[in-house]
Amino acid sequence: MRPGLFIHLMSIETRKLFSYRVDFWVTTVVNMVVTLIVFWYLWEAMFQESGASTIGGWSLPGILTYSVLISLSGRVIRGGDLQMAISTDIYEGSLSRFLLYPSRYFFFKYAQQAGAVLPELLQSIAMGALIVLVYGIPTEVPVTATSLLMALPTILIGHLLFFMLSVIPQLVAFWAENVWSLSVLLRFITMLLGGGMLPLSLFPEWAQSILAWMPFIYLYDFPARVAMGLVTQAQWLEGMLLSLLWCGITALLAVPFWRRGELQYTGVGI
């Protein structure tokens, strides 16, 4: 681990993102607004048609706040796009150049991935501030400056966890010709089971107890609940430790994939 190199790689990626044209940034903002509109109408309709005052323990303002938070934090955690960098390196053969450098390949890749955090985070914070200005903070939700600060490390760990989860599907590229579908698959699964589509407390009890034992919960549900001040300090620490543990487990699981795949890497072309 060399912090100097890490920061250098990260800053290159960050500068690249900042240098994108305005229309790119405008469309990402539009995307976020559209996503929020879809959430808003969905929950509005749910509460109206069911006639209930709470759903899965959430009030309408609560669930809307949750939706805003997962749309804002989700982009940071996913690092913007689909995770395809590693698999692309493998089948386009650009892995070769990283193998030549005297540094670990995954170190490079994570540094590049982390380079996207800052621009996404800034954008999310700006969007969040705008939403607060327009709508204010709902009184039903105990969101505070402290809870938002507490959410920051959970989001960064979530970002690492998402990267780690994406490593194994991408390493399959050593054997398969195209693993795009696996990355998409990961996205579907993490969205539904991680709370990116709806709060996990809407699932039946039995499903919730299974989900608590899975890593996905730390991607969207946990950071959002931390940000909303719904998590005690002890739970906060425990959650971060557990998600780091999951990072470790997925890293260990990826090792044999890397070892075996790298053995038969051809560098594309003879």
Binding site: H8, L9, I12, K16, G93, S96, R97, L100, Y101, S103
Partner: peptide, 30 residues
């Protein structure tokens, strides 16, 4: 790895969207 180099005429190894000066700085770090 710090003592070898591979140059491939058919395959670009440098960062495509960076100016060479930036690439070199990165390599200094690597």
């Amino acid at each position: 790895r710090t003592q070898i180099a591979l140059i491939m005429g058919q395959k670009a190894q440098l960062w495509w969207d960076l100016p060479a000066a930036d690439c070199f700085l990165l390599l200094r770090e690597i």
